[in-house]
Design a protein around this nucleic acid. Structure first.
Lengths: 210, 210
DNA sequence: AATTTTGGAGAGTCATACTATCCAAAGTCA
DNA sequence: TGACTTTGGATAGTATGACTCTCCAAAATT
């Protein structure tokens, strides 16, 4: 297919596709002459991936380029896969380095240290930021959350890592993370509303006085 | 205190503070003369809130303004509080409207319909986006996640809604949500890495073939 | 032959979030 | 008292990111 058809099939304008080509987010089509190149399903899929990362994951163009570069050099070993995923989706811009107190709490949870694991670093940074913002997360609360997210991660690892090729596993894991993080946060909110309604009946006219 | 001290205490430059004043993110100090105004702890606290919303929550200036406006008109009724919080922190820019299929799935979970609840709308939109991105969330998986996030929400509602004044409860809930969402996502990643290491031992040299 | 499309390159646009400059009045300190 | 600094307020400028537009000449289509 030509670029106009790629545009039609993805809903992305031709100038934007050209921009993605320039920026290295989209691999070049097969050149047939100086003014003709042909694109295929891999391009359609790539454009959709890029749009998902940008629209849902709110990744910058630069970060998307890192993701597609990683896709073209998938890790040979399955146990490195999540590391690559988590690196690709790490928050931007980089948060402050964590306090030692936060690092200790992460270790106390039984997670690997920040030197070994990017996810541990992110957790320590998130806990630091919470503390800096004046929010205290009790140890008991943290452990409840840990158990809850462990249950979530079991479905992730079960689903994500079937015996498929590394590049597919990587794309699957990245897309899955980007698309399901918002689902989890929305589920939290739905549950909050349910519990709130349960406790302060939704038609209580006398609420709110102090 | 004068603006220079406010700047020193918050780490935000004077030009930026003036910008926040202009944009209505920061309430004016008490004017003492044409060229003198005095700021107090409420200003320090507000600046810190604004920075948290911007740096951690990645909210736009416009959205931050909505949040501070809401803080100055807190909902009289406690059961409306979460609605205000969720509206203030809704994703930006607005996602596509959800498919009817996604809306049905949300209702099947026992959550209120999208007409009644912003969180339900967000969930339906997140599920729609996942489906559009080619990601299938099994019903069984979704229920596991729902239970997990319900456990999380119990700690939220318990902590968030002590018997404090509406404005404080609102600020507390907003800051808590912004600061703890990243903690949850990081916990998910940590758990993923732990499970992945458990299943594909972290020093297995024969992984990756196929 | 006339028209349309393409690849490629460069410049232009738009929004967001600051930063910088200016000013005159007001305060501070020697 | 008088030089120096700070302030509030207004206006203009900058940096970045993500496109979007314009041009061109060589194909390709009609």
């Amino acid at each position: 297919m030509r670029i106009s058809e790629l545009s039609d099939r993805t809903g992305v304008t031709i100038p934007t596709l050209k921009y993605y080509l320039r920026e290295g987010l989209l691999h070049a089509g097969e050149a047939q002459s100086a003014t003709r190149a042909v694109y295929d399903d891999s391009h359609v899929e790539r454009v959709r991936l890029v749009r998902t990362l940008i629209d849902v994951g709110r990744l910058s163009i630069e970060r998307v380029r890192e993701v597609v570069d990683a896709l073209e050099h998938p890790p040979p070993s399955r146990h490195q896969l999540l590391g690559v995923v988590h690196e690709a989706l790490r928050p931007h811009p980089a948060p402050e380095p964590p306090t030692t107190e936060a690092v200790d709490r992460v270790r106390a949870l039984g997670a690997p240290g920040c030197d070994e694991s990017l996810a541990s670093t992110q957790l320590a940074q998130a806990l630091s930021a919470a503390a800096a913002g004046g929010w205290v997360v009790e140890d008991a609360t943290l452990r409840v959350w840990q158990r809850a997210m462990h249950a979530v991660a079991e479905t992730d690892v079960a689903e994500e890592l079937g015996s498929i090729a590394p590049a597919d596993a990587l794309r699957h894991a990245i897309v899955g993370t980007v698309l399901t993080d918002p689902v989890l946060l929305a589920l939290r909110r739905v549950a909050q509303e349910a519990l709130s309604a349960e406790r302060f009946g939704s038609a209580d006219p006398e609420d709110g006085v102090t």
